[in-house]
Design a protein around this nucleic acid. Structure first.
Lengths: 208, 208
DNA sequence: ATCTACAAGATTGTTAGCAATCTCGTTGAC
DNA sequence: GTCAACGAGATTGCTAACAATCTTGTAGAT
């Protein structure tokens, strides 16, 4: 396994909770776990450190970096403005096929909420956001969002378990879809920002 | 010199134009240039690759990454929303001392434009943006802005040489200062976004 | 029982050198 | 003259091993 593969595998392992915040990431253990040599493991650790998923201290090795609630809120504030930009741009670039697709996702989300399928809703949530990014085709925004997402996974999990969260977010997602499909960039941006403001508020409520 | 020092030195060298876009960054030459061993140079190259300043291809080494005009425009679009967030937050968090400082910078900028000191204006421009970031204290925004800045330096240089650019931007900067000092977050955000929209337009004009 | 000192083991940081790959220049064929 | 093949040199990728640093457990003193 080369360093890019280790990096991908380790990132996924962290995102899925196999390695938890503050956990030591011992090189020799990672070599065994991923079937790689130290060279590749060290390179992967360096990259994941640059990404903010891992922290390293000289002579003391690497740990999964813990993202505080305050930091999660700041990250969400950045997401609010950047995903607002994405939504606005999607509204500008939308094709008819895109519109159909967004409507379809919206309908599936409503069904998932009505039938109480939280996992499906969560998947569709991710799919909606990804679709907007595809439509918008703003490379730099995509890069930033991808990077920030890795750091938020734990808090997102916590949020998804808040009762009523799906119901609340459904209306917001639908508003985003409606505005984008209406090809109204300003409304799309506003709707997306309102949605993520609601995420921020829910995060703040977690801290109380 | 350790890898952090090489990274800083190499970043600075790239930003100041010692190494130009597309230029090969040969490890052994960098070792000599920075008085470092290959280990440190390779680590620095890896980090600067993650930062987007350098690109590396397997077995073919590293080059200074060229940032296209299109990418510069996308970067500026991100800056527009993120620096808008910073301006709004600065407006919320401003102290009286902060206000005095911003006003002082604004006055110096006006003087620089009136006396035709483009270099001074450019420095003050950077200082204004940095001061807003200090006031806002949004760690994640600062990180993103710092990273994007490194990638924009070449296009910023091109912009600063556009005749009349300083005069045009002075009014915009003053509008930002006024809104922040007035503790009006929405106006601050709008003013900052208008300023960077103007940057984006100037960038687009460079391509024609 | 608690605290300190020390040594052993664990782990990270780095080196020197070799293997692998690419680039470029030269030569020969057409 | 152009193009292809080959070899030498340049450069990157990686290894094995050693040095440096930290952590933990044990023994001894109080």
């Amino acid at each position: 396994m080369d360093d890019a593969q280790v990096r991908e595998a380790l990132r996924e392992a962290i995102l899925r909770g196999e390695f938890v915040p503050r956990q030591r990431l011992v090189e020799v253990d990672l070599c065994e776990r991923f079937g790689a040599r130290r060279f590749a493991v060290r390179a992967a650790l360096q990259d994941l450190t640059a990404e903010g998923l891992v922290e390293r201290q000289p002579n003391r090795g690497a740990r999964v970096r813990e993202v505080s609630l305050d930091e999660a809120i700041e990250i969400s504030e950045i997401r609010r403005v950047v995903e607002g930009l994405v939504a606005a741009r999607a509204a500008e670039r939308l094709t008819d096929a895109d519109a159909s697709r967004l409507k379809s996702i919206g309908q599936q989300m409503r069904t998932a909420v009505e039938t109480g399928e939280a996992g499906t809703y969560s998947d569709l949530n991710a799919e909606l956001h990804a679709t907007l990014r595809e439509i918008a085709r703003h490379e730099m925004a995509n890069r930033i969002i991808a990077q920030l997402r890795g750091q938020m996974v734990r808090h997102q999990f916590a949020l998804s378990r808040v009762p009523g969260r799906s119901v609340a977010s459904l209306a917001q997602h639908e508003a985003v879809i409606d505005a984008v499909v209406a090809r109204d960039p300003a409304a799309a941006e506003t709707a997306m920002q309102a949605h993520i403001t609601s995420v921020i508020e829910a995060l703040r409520a977690l801290g109380r």
